[in-house]
Amino acid sequence: MTFKAIINGKTLKGETTTEAVDAATAEKVFKQYFNDNGLDGEWTYDDATKTFTVTE
């Protein structure tokens, strides 16, 4: 399945996608990506659209 992340950061904005077997796996991938890029913020997840949003 394809999962999307919308990034609303102070220094980084945009979208990225990942292929994962479930939402928990996708969340781990996205959180690692955000940690690697120095992002920290509020997380939400919309199961209907398979979209994570992080707002810094």
Rank of each mutant, 00 (worst) to 15 (best):
Phe52Trp: 05
Asn8Pro: 05
Val54Met: 10
Ala23Val: 08
Thr16Pro: 03
Ala20Lys: 01
Leu39Asn: 06
Thr17Phe: 12
Asn37Val: 14
Asp40Leu: 14
Gly41Trp: 15
Ala24Val: 08
Ala48Pro: 06
Gly41Ser: 06
Gly38Cys: 09
Gly9Val: 12
Thr2Leu: 12
Thr17Glu: 07
Ala23Tyr: 10
Thr16Asn: 05
Asp46Thr: 02
Lys31Phe: 04
Thr49Phe: 03
Gly9Lys: 07
Gln32Ile: 08
Thr55Gly: 04
Phe30Val: 02
Glu19Leu: 14
Tyr33Met: 10
Gly41Gln: 05
Thr2Arg: 05
Val21His: 10
Lys10Cys: 14
Gly38Asn: 10
Thr11Val: 11
Thr17Cys: 12
Ala48Tyr: 09
Phe30Met: 03
Asp46Ala: 02
Thr17Gly: 03
Met1Tyr: 14
Asn8Asp: 09
Gly9Pro: 03
Gly41His: 09
Gln32Ala: 11
Phe3Arg: 00
Gly38Gln: 07
Asp22Ile: 01
Val29Ser: 05
Glu15Gln: 10
Val54Pro: 02
Val54Phe: 15
Thr44Phe: 09
Glu27His: 10
Phe3Gln: 02
Lys28His: 08
Lys10Ser: 11
Leu12Ser: 11
Gln32Arg: 10
Thr44Val: 09
Asp47Tyr: 06
Asp46Gln: 03
Val21Ser: 11
Phe30Trp: 02
Ala20Ser: 06
Asp36Cys: 10
Lys4Tyr: 14
Ala20Phe: 02
Asp40Met: 12
Met1Trp: 14
Trp43Lys: 00
Lys13Arg: 13
Phe34Tyr: 09
Met1Thr: 14
Tyr33Gln: 06
Asp47Gly: 06
Asp36Leu: 12
Ala23Gln: 08
Asn35Glu: 14
Lys28Phe: 07
Asn37Cys: 15
Thr53Ala: 03
Thr49Val: 04
Thr25His: 11
Tyr45Ala: 00
Gly14Met: 15
Asp36Trp: 11
Gly38Thr: 04
Phe52Val: 01
Thr16Ser: 08
Asp36Tyr: 08
Thr11Lys: 11
Thr11His: 12
Lys13Ile: 09
Gly14His: 14
Ala48Val: 10
Thr55Cys: 04
Gly38Ser: 06
Asn35Ala: 15
Ala48Arg: 09
Ala5Val: 13
Glu19Trp: 15
Gly14Leu: 15
Glu15Ile: 12
Thr25Gln: 12
Ala5Lys: 02
Lys31Asp: 00
Val21Asn: 09
Thr53Asn: 05
Lys10Thr: 13
Asp46Arg: 00
Ala5Tyr: 06
Lys31Tyr: 04
Gly14Val: 15
Asp46Phe: 02
Glu56Val: 15
Thr55Tyr: 13
Thr17Gln: 08
Val54Leu: 13
Asp47Asn: 06
Phe52Thr: 01
Asn37Glu: 09
Thr51Ile: 04
Tyr33Val: 05
Met1Lys: 08
Asp40Pro: 05
Ala23Glu: 04
Phe3Lys: 01
Glu27Cys: 13
Phe52Asp: 00
Thr11Phe: 13
Lys10Gly: 10
Gly9Tyr: 13
Thr2Ile: 14
Thr25Pro: 00
Thr55Trp: 12
Gly41Leu: 14
Ala48Met: 11
Phe3Trp: 04
Leu39Asp: 03
Gly14Arg: 12
Lys13Gln: 11
Ile7Leu: 11
Asn37Pro: 03
Phe52Cys: 02
Glu42Ser: 10
Lys31Cys: 06
Lys50Ala: 06
Glu27Thr: 03
Glu27Gln: 14
Glu56Ala: 09
Thr16Gly: 04
